[in-house]
Computed example of a mutant assay.
Amino acid sequence: MQHNQRRIDAIKRSFDIGASAFGLVITAPVQAGVAALVLATHGKPVLFRQERPGKDGKIFELVKFRTMLLPDENHATDEERLTAVGRILRSTSLDELPTLWNVLKGDMSLIGPRPLLVSYLGQYSPEQARRHEVRPGITGLAQVRGRNAVSWEERFQFDIEYVDNRSLALDLKILLQTVRSVLQREGINQEGHATMTPFVGSETKGGSDACE
């Protein structure tokens, strides 16, 4: 079983390299247009950069297009900072296009558990921490089963389900369902929040799966 998973991971990495390189080339005109739009509406910097934990918890720098204004006295919360342009970029997933660089470099995969905040690392249960056994993905099982609209407990359950059952067939299924979810703009945010409520630890660690 372990040998089979290593073979699948090797094939998957080869596909990630080819697909991300092709994606970067074919989306270059779109990315140039989005960059110009972000610059005009949000100013500099055009890219959002943030450290995230990858495979085995190794930290890397995630890159996306900015969807929010920089925080100031009038724009303190995520809801206040998220612009109309930003909402469109998020709902269409155009903000994710620069993340193909992370896939090409090997920080991420096209399919896998979404990379979350570094500050969450100490809050996972041992089972939840297993999401770092594989490269994080641009999209994953949790995203096609609700994206940001599912609870943290459900999201982690889907992540571990993917780790334990990953296969090329499952990746293809997730990829096709992602296209459908993006076209239908499903699960972009939790009700009343710009994206998803922060994770403060699961009930097994003395916290809850809801924040704020």
Rank of each mutant, 00 (worst) to 15 (best):
I88A: 13
P71K: 11
V38I: 02
F60M: 10
Q5G: 03
A32C: 09
E61Q: 14
A32Q: 05
L62G: 05
D56H: 10
G43L: 07
A10C: 11
G23M: 06
A36S: 06
A36H: 06
R81D: 08
D78F: 02
F65R: 03
R49I: 10
E80R: 07
V63R: 11
A76E: 06
P45T: 02
T83K: 09
L24C: 01
A28I: 10
G43C: 04
E79Y: 14
V38P: 02
P45Y: 01
K55P: 00
D72R: 09
I88W: 15
L47V: 04
E51V: 01
I88S: 10
R87E: 09
I88H: 04
S14K: 13
F22A: 14
V63E: 12
E73W: 00
G86T: 03
F60E: 03
V30C: 05
T83C: 11
L39W: 04
A40E: 07
A10E: 03
D16P: 11
T83A: 09
T27S: 13
G57Q: 01
R81K: 10
K12N: 13
V30N: 08
V30P: 09
A19Q: 12
V25P: 00
G33D: 00
K58C: 04
A35W: 00
E61N: 11
V34C: 05
